[in-house]
């Protein structure tokens, strides 16, 4: 495993992302959609509203914010391998000494970093606005410690899951759009875990958040190994699987 090669791929990907207007537009607009709607909902809640209603509203809003790390990475990650093939850069890339684990990890990091940055940015914009503009009871529910811990811990874990799902689709699909649609769809179940906490179906606690986070972390690490096994140079180049004698 070469850190130098991983760094080279991450740097190239980030440069390429920054200059891709479609991607920058998607990264800017999509999160705003998920920010504005819950913010308006919570800002309209009067101070006299019962606590259970507030908790329910905050749960729903937080869940929408978890959609950001679940939907942005697949859009980028699904492009990462098949996109290279579409623009004719995959073959020269694969003839370099890069190993598949390095390639996939680098691609994942390159998607993870901007996705999580945007997701955290959106969350803090949401939380700060609520803090200063919403009713005190609403603010207290948003700034509830397990709620914050859940956002901080689960955002990168959901994003990582979504990244691997996106890359897996990118490795196997024959078309970028199909890969993006399937990846987005397949990323959503990860939000289910967090929904249990945000809607307080299970009693939210730091211990529970950590336990679920560990489960997601294990899944994320295994996903890397799994996607590595899916990666087949021959299939990507020729469209058919390698059948060595």
């Amino acid at each position: 495993m070469s850190g130098e090669r991983i760094r080279a791929v991450v740097q190239k990907e980030l440069r390429d992302f920054r200059r891709n207007r479609f991607l920058v537009g998607t990264m800017a607009v999509l999160p705003l959609v998920f920010l504005v709607s819950p913010m308006i909902t919570l800002l309209q809640i009067p101070a006299s509203t019962p606590v259970s209603v507030i908790h329910h509203a905050v749960g729903g809003s937080s869940l929408l914010l978890f959609v950001v790390p679940a939907v942005i990475p697949p859009i980028m990650a699904a492009y990462s391998v098949i996109g290279e093939r579409d623009q004719g850069t995959l073959e020269p890339f694969l003839t370099t000494p890069i190993e598949r684990e390095e390639l996939l990890l680098a691609k994942a990091i390159a998607v993870f970093l901007p996705s999580v940055t945007v997701a955290y940015g959106i969350y803090f914009a949401f939380a700060l606005t609520i803090r200063f503009a919403a009713a005190h009871a609403v603010s207290a529910a948003v700034w509830h410690t397990p709620q914050i811990v859940a956002q901080l811990v689960f955002t990168p874990l959901i994003a990582t899951w979504a990244v691997w799902v996106g890359i897996a689709m990118s490795v196997r699909a024959r078309d970028v759009r199909v890969a993006q649609q399937l990846a987005t769809l397949a990323s959503l179940p990860a939000i289910g875990i967090t929904a249990l906490i945000t809607f307080r179906v299970v009693t939210p606690s730091v211990r529970l958040a950590v336990a679920l986070a560990v489960v997601l972390l294990v899944i994320d690490i295994r996903a890397w190994r799994f996607v590595s096994k899916l990666f087949d140079r021959e299939r990507l180049i020729t469209g058919s699987r390698a059948k060595p004698s």
């Binding site: 080279a8 791929v9 190239k12 390429d16 850069t89 995959l90 073959e91 020269p92 890339f93 003839t95």
Partner: peptide, 30 residues
């Protein structure tokens, strides 16, 4: 590590500069 292949299509990253393309591949070859 010992060879280089120039495929029929140049396969360059069109949003990157000439130097940035070469920097990327220099990194891959360490």
């Amino acid at each position: 590590q010992q060879i280089a292949v120039m495929p029929e299509a140049p396969g360059l990253y069109l949003r990157l500069t000439v130097t940035e393309n070469l920097e990327f591949f220099a990194g891959l070859y360490r």
